[in-house]
């Protein structure tokens, strides 16, 4: 442990790299979330109809169809054979997220992410206990349950309670009492289970995790030998079990964060004062295990 571990999370990075660089992916991520939501709101708010519809299915510039693949799978399981437009839209979405990381959706697009991030921020501020922490696999079981419910009921079951599309549709078309679903998620994360919704329960996240299993875009701990064990990355990471295999892996093991749970949010890159982490592609195995923390060095390992 270095002395820096006594500083608040991210403080050292701000001292070393400056506030902007120590928050750049957080800022980019918020801009991205605002951008994707804003595209949908341009129409109803300003009459600029570039993107119409909701996250469930949309039409961009009157030509590009995009469809939520999980919604469509539920529809098929419920017994409907969708038209080609929706199928095309879902294939496009799956392809993109299979490349950039399925859970990139969670941290860069999903409108619930700012809500659960706010809950976590408040959770830390209030110093609340971790609370109930169901297993990480719970969301996969919930995904199975959702698909089963769709098959049994013959409806797109998750869309009855899905806080993501409920919030999005609420903002774009009219809220009704959909805000209560969002409030439930906020209170759950705040009072019941720290980072419980996105990290343990949400079946949409579980689905996108599966989509991104072999994704190309990855975070690497390439300069892991420079790590001074300040633990800031573990503190900011919403899925911090993904870090250890890359950061603390045996000499010669891959420095890539290969877990499909990683949301590619980039906060680890932000808060690391010694720049251990970086975005790269999954075929980039370069790391500096042998080299001194500062030096350029051979990256090949003796096997």
């Amino acid at each position: 442990m270095s002395a820096s571990s006594s500083l608040p999370v991210g403080a050292e990075a701000i001292q070393v790299k400056g506030w902007l660089k120590a928050n750049r992916f957080l800022i980019l991520r918020r801009l991205s979330q605002a951008f994707f939501l804003g595209l949908f709101l341009l129409g109803p708010w300003f009459g600029i109809w570039w993107v119409e519809g909701t996250l469930a299915s949309s039409r961009t510039f009157d030509v590009l169809p995009l469809t939520d693949p999980l919604v469509l799978i539920q529809s098929i399981i419920a017994g409907h054979l969708p038209e080609l437009t929706a199928v095309t839209g879902a294939i496009i979405v799956v392809t993109v997220y299979a490349l950039v990381g399925g859970r990139t959706y969670c941290s860069w697009v999903c409108p619930i992410n700012p809500v659960t991030d706010a809950a976590h921020w408040l959770h830390v501020r209030l110093g609340l206990p971790k609370g109930w922490q169901p297993k990480k696999s719970t969301r996969l079981w919930l995904l199975v349950g959702v698909l089963g419910a769709s098959a049994l009921s013959g409806t797109i079951a998750w869309e009855l309670v899905n806080p993501i599309t409920a919030l999005h549709r609420g903002l774009v078309f009219g809220m009704g009492f959909a805000w209560m679903l969002v409030l439930c998620v906020l209170l759950f994360d705040l009072l019941v289970s720290r980072r419980g919704w996105c990290g343990r329960l949400c079946p949409v996240g579980a689905f996108y995790g599966l989509v991104g299993t072999a994704s190309v875009l990855r975070v690497t701990a390439a300069k892991r030998s420079a790590c001074d064990d300040c633990m800031d990355c573990y503190a900011v990471c919403p899925e911090n079990h993904v870090i250890s295999p890359a950061l603390k892996g045996a000499k010669g093991s891959t420095p890539l964060i290969l877990s499909s749970d990683c949301t590619n949010c980039g906060r680890c890159i932000d808060v690391c004062a010694v720049d251990v982490f970086a975005f790269t592609h999954r075929f980039d195995n370069a790391h500096n295990d042998i080299a001194a923390p500062s030096g350029a060095a051979p990256t090949k390992q003796a096997v």
Partner: peptide, 13 residues
Amino acid sequence: FLSACVRCGLCVR
């Protein structure tokens, strides 16, 4: 209908 409609709102638009 409930197995087919994804509630995107494009018909509304």
